[in-house]
Simulated scan of single mutants.
Amino acid sequence: MAEDLNITTSTNKAEQYQSLIPQIEALLTGESDLIANLANVCAALKEQFKWFWVGFYLVKGDELVLGPFQGLVACTRIGLGRGVCGAAWQQEKTLIVPDVDAFPGHIACSSLSKSEIVLPLFNDGKVVAVLDVDSEAFDQFDETDAVYLQQIIELVNFK
Protein backbone atom coordinates (compact mmCIF):
# COMPACT_ATOMS: atom_id res chain seq x y z
CA MET A 1 0.00 0.00 0.00
CA ALA A 2 1.14 3.51 -0.63
CA GLU A 3 1.99 5.31 2.57
CA ASP A 4 -0.83 7.82 2.10
CA LEU A 5 -3.98 7.91 4.17
CA ASN A 6 -7.43 8.83 3.02
CA ILE A 7 -8.43 11.12 5.89
CA THR A 8 -12.16 11.31 6.39
CA THR A 9 -13.65 14.65 7.36
CA SER A 10 -16.75 13.09 8.90
CA THR A 11 -17.65 14.49 12.30
CA ASN A 12 -18.84 11.02 13.32
CA LYS A 13 -16.04 9.42 15.34
CA ALA A 14 -17.12 5.84 14.55
CA GLU A 15 -17.08 6.60 10.81
CA GLN A 16 -13.56 8.03 11.13
CA TYR A 17 -12.35 4.84 12.81
CA GLN A 18 -14.18 2.63 10.31
CA SER A 19 -12.42 4.43 7.46
CA LEU A 20 -9.03 4.34 9.18
CA ILE A 21 -8.89 0.73 10.42
CA PRO A 22 -8.64 -0.97 7.00
CA GLN A 23 -5.96 1.54 6.01
CA ILE A 24 -3.92 0.76 9.13
CA GLU A 25 -4.40 -2.95 8.47
CA ALA A 26 -3.03 -2.46 4.95
CA LEU A 27 -0.04 -0.51 6.30
CA LEU A 28 0.81 -3.34 8.70
CA THR A 29 0.20 -6.23 6.31
CA GLY A 30 3.47 -7.77 5.20
CA GLU A 31 5.61 -5.66 7.55
CA SER A 32 7.17 -7.68 10.36
CA ASP A 33 9.12 -4.90 12.09
CA LEU A 34 7.34 -4.02 15.32
CA ILE A 35 8.81 -0.52 15.68
CA ALA A 36 7.89 0.40 12.11
CA ASN A 37 4.34 -0.82 12.66
CA LEU A 38 3.93 1.02 15.96
CA ALA A 39 5.27 4.19 14.34
CA ASN A 40 2.77 3.95 11.47
CA VAL A 41 -0.13 3.35 13.85
CA CYS A 42 0.83 6.49 15.79
CA ALA A 43 1.16 8.56 12.63
CA ALA A 44 -2.16 7.36 11.22
CA LEU A 45 -4.05 8.10 14.45
CA LYS A 46 -2.43 11.52 14.87
CA GLU A 47 -3.13 12.44 11.26
CA GLN A 48 -6.79 11.35 11.37
CA PHE A 49 -7.77 12.72 14.76
CA LYS A 50 -5.26 15.55 15.33
CA TRP A 51 -4.83 14.47 18.94
CA PHE A 52 -2.20 16.20 21.07
CA TRP A 53 -0.06 13.09 21.63
CA VAL A 54 -0.21 9.47 20.45
CA GLY A 55 2.39 6.91 21.40
CA PHE A 56 3.40 3.53 22.70
CA TYR A 57 5.27 2.63 25.85
CA LEU A 58 6.93 -0.79 25.81
CA VAL A 59 7.26 -2.99 28.90
CA LYS A 60 10.94 -3.50 29.65
CA GLY A 61 11.51 -5.19 32.98
CA ASP A 62 9.70 -3.23 35.66
CA GLU A 63 9.19 -0.08 33.58
CA LEU A 64 7.36 1.24 30.60
CA VAL A 65 9.89 2.71 28.17
CA LEU A 66 8.95 5.27 25.54
CA GLY A 67 8.48 3.79 22.09
CA PRO A 68 7.28 5.25 18.79
CA PHE A 69 5.11 8.34 19.19
CA GLN A 70 3.78 11.47 17.53
CA GLY A 71 3.72 14.72 19.49
CA LEU A 72 5.87 16.69 21.90
CA VAL A 73 8.77 15.13 23.77
CA ALA A 74 7.53 12.77 26.46
CA CYS A 75 8.39 11.02 29.68
CA THR A 76 10.93 8.32 28.88
CA ARG A 77 10.28 5.82 31.68
CA ILE A 78 7.19 5.10 33.76
CA GLY A 79 7.04 2.70 36.68
CA LEU A 80 4.37 0.08 37.26
CA GLY A 81 1.29 1.76 38.72
CA ARG A 82 2.56 5.32 38.10
CA GLY A 83 0.32 7.71 36.21
CA VAL A 84 -2.39 6.64 33.80
CA CYS A 85 -0.02 4.50 31.71
CA GLY A 86 1.43 2.67 34.69
CA ALA A 87 -2.04 2.16 36.16
CA ALA A 88 -3.41 0.72 32.90
CA TRP A 89 -0.41 -1.64 32.81
CA GLN A 90 -0.83 -2.69 36.43
CA GLN A 91 -4.61 -3.10 36.21
CA GLU A 92 -4.39 -4.71 32.75
CA LYS A 93 -7.32 -2.68 31.49
CA THR A 94 -8.18 0.35 29.40
CA LEU A 95 -8.39 3.59 31.34
CA ILE A 96 -10.34 6.62 30.12
CA VAL A 97 -9.51 9.80 32.03
CA PRO A 98 -11.74 12.83 31.25
CA ASP A 99 -9.58 15.21 33.35
CA VAL A 100 -5.98 14.17 33.90
CA ASP A 101 -5.52 16.66 36.73
CA ALA A 102 -8.15 14.75 38.71
CA PHE A 103 -6.33 11.42 38.26
CA PRO A 104 -4.38 10.48 41.40
CA GLY A 105 -0.67 10.36 40.62
CA HIS A 106 -1.01 11.71 37.09
CA ILE A 107 2.38 12.27 35.45
CA ALA A 108 2.30 15.62 33.67
CA CYS A 109 4.64 15.22 30.71
CA SER A 110 2.88 18.32 29.35
CA SER A 111 0.55 20.72 31.12
CA LEU A 112 -1.35 21.04 27.82
CA SER A 113 -2.74 17.50 28.13
CA LYS A 114 -6.27 17.55 29.57
CA SER A 115 -7.71 14.07 28.91
CA GLU A 116 -6.24 10.67 28.15
CA ILE A 117 -6.99 7.10 27.14
CA VAL A 118 -4.54 4.26 27.68
CA LEU A 119 -4.97 0.72 26.36
CA PRO A 120 -2.76 -2.24 27.29
CA LEU A 121 -1.45 -4.52 24.53
CA PHE A 122 -1.12 -8.20 25.37
CA ASN A 123 1.03 -11.05 24.12
CA ASP A 124 0.50 -14.52 25.58
CA GLY A 125 -1.65 -13.04 28.35
CA LYS A 126 0.95 -10.51 29.50
CA VAL A 127 0.94 -6.75 28.98
CA VAL A 128 3.81 -5.96 26.61
CA ALA A 129 3.02 -2.32 25.85
CA VAL A 130 0.42 0.41 26.24
CA LEU A 131 -1.06 2.80 23.70
CA ASP A 132 -1.30 6.26 25.23
CA VAL A 133 -3.40 9.01 23.62
CA ASP A 134 -3.67 12.53 25.04
CA SER A 135 -5.92 15.42 24.07
CA GLU A 136 -5.80 19.14 24.79
CA ALA A 137 -9.57 18.97 25.38
CA PHE A 138 -11.28 17.73 28.50
CA ASP A 139 -13.47 14.61 28.20
CA GLN A 140 -12.20 13.80 24.70
CA PHE A 141 -12.35 10.00 24.92
CA ASP A 142 -15.20 7.57 25.45
CA GLU A 143 -16.20 3.95 24.90
CA THR A 144 -16.28 4.49 21.13
CA ASP A 145 -12.56 5.28 21.26
CA ALA A 146 -11.92 2.33 23.55
CA VAL A 147 -13.67 -0.11 21.21
CA TYR A 148 -12.04 1.08 18.00
CA LEU A 149 -8.57 1.66 19.45
CA GLN A 150 -8.74 -1.90 20.80
CA GLN A 151 -9.43 -3.13 17.27
CA ILE A 152 -6.43 -1.17 16.02
CA ILE A 153 -3.97 -2.45 18.61
CA GLU A 154 -5.11 -6.01 17.94
CA LEU A 155 -3.71 -5.57 14.42
CA VAL A 156 -0.19 -5.18 15.85
CA ASN A 157 1.73 -8.44 16.07
CA PHE A 158 4.03 -8.64 19.09
CA LYS A 159 5.31 -12.13 18.31
Rank of each mutant, 00 (worst) to 15 (best):
residue 130 V to G: 00
residue 148 Y to N: 03
residue 115 S to Y: 13
residue 44 A to L: 13
residue 38 L to D: 07
residue 66 L to C: 06
residue 49 F to S: 02
residue 75 C to K: 13
residue 66 L to F: 02
residue 156 V to C: 12
residue 22 P to M: 00
residue 78 I to M: 04
residue 97 V to W: 14
residue 152 I to H: 07
residue 79 G to C: 10
residue 100 V to G: 09
residue 133 V to H: 05
residue 26 A to M: 08
residue 14 A to Q: 15
residue 20 L to D: 04
residue 89 W to G: 05
residue 124 D to Y: 01
residue 37 N to Y: 07
residue 104 P to Q: 04
residue 38 L to A: 06
residue 114 K to I: 09
residue 17 Y to K: 03
residue 133 V to M: 12
residue 49 F to K: 03
residue 73 V to N: 08
residue 13 K to C: 08
residue 28 L to R: 00
residue 24 I to W: 02
residue 91 Q to M: 09
residue 111 S to I: 07
residue 96 I to G: 01
residue 120 P to W: 08
residue 46 K to L: 09
residue 35 I to N: 10
residue 2 A to L: 11
residue 101 D to G: 11
residue 42 C to N: 15
residue 16 Q to H: 08
residue 39 A to H: 13
residue 8 T to G: 12
residue 53 W to R: 12
residue 138 F to V: 03
residue 155 L to K: 03
residue 1 M to I: 10
residue 154 E to A: 12
residue 91 Q to Y: 02
residue 126 K to Y: 04
residue 83 G to Y: 06
residue 128 V to G: 04
residue 98 P to R: 03
residue 139 D to T: 12
residue 15 E to S: 07
residue 123 N to M: 13
residue 120 P to I: 09
residue 155 L to D: 09
residue 41 V to L: 15
residue 127 V to T: 11
residue 10 S to N: 10
residue 61 G to P: 11
residue 3 E to D: 15
residue 141 F to S: 06
residue 125 G to N: 06
residue 23 Q to I: 06
residue 21 I to F: 11
residue 109 C to T: 01
residue 27 L to G: 01
residue 103 F to V: 08
residue 114 K to A: 09
residue 73 V to L: 10
residue 11 T to P: 02
residue 102 A to H: 13
residue 146 A to H: 05
residue 47 E to Y: 06
residue 71 G to Y: 03
residue 17 Y to C: 05
residue 20 L to Q: 10
residue 22 P to F: 00
residue 48 Q to R: 07
residue 11 T to S: 13
residue 122 F to M: 14
residue 60 K to T: 14
residue 79 G to W: 00
residue 140 Q to N: 06
residue 15 E to I: 09
residue 42 C to I: 11
residue 78 I to E: 07
residue 146 A to M: 07
residue 18 Q to Y: 05
residue 63 E to R: 14
residue 85 C to G: 08
residue 1 M to G: 14
residue 136 E to M: 09
residue 27 L to C: 10
residue 95 L to W: 00
residue 133 V to W: 02
residue 70 Q to N: 08
residue 34 L to R: 06
residue 142 D to Q: 05
residue 41 V to P: 03
residue 51 W to K: 01
residue 66 L to H: 07
residue 146 A to V: 06
residue 27 L to K: 12
residue 118 V to L: 02
residue 51 W to F: 12
residue 47 E to A: 15
residue 2 A to V: 03
residue 101 D to P: 00
residue 129 A to L: 08
residue 16 Q to R: 15
residue 22 P to S: 00
residue 108 A to Q: 14
residue 66 L to A: 08
residue 20 L to A: 02
residue 27 L to I: 11
residue 105 G to Y: 03
residue 31 E to D: 13
residue 25 E to K: 15
residue 76 T to E: 15
residue 111 S to R: 10
residue 28 L to S: 01
residue 121 L to W: 00
residue 38 L to S: 01
residue 89 W to K: 04
residue 44 A to Q: 12
residue 151 Q to A: 14
residue 81 G to T: 07
residue 32 S to E: 14
residue 77 R to H: 11
residue 126 K to W: 00
residue 136 E to N: 06
residue 137 A to F: 05
residue 6 N to K: 14
residue 144 T to E: 10
residue 102 A to I: 07
residue 89 W to V: 03
residue 130 V to F: 03
residue 4 D to W: 10
residue 45 L to H: 10
residue 127 V to G: 04
residue 81 G to W: 07
residue 127 V to S: 01
residue 145 D to P: 08
residue 109 C to F: 13
residue 27 L to V: 01
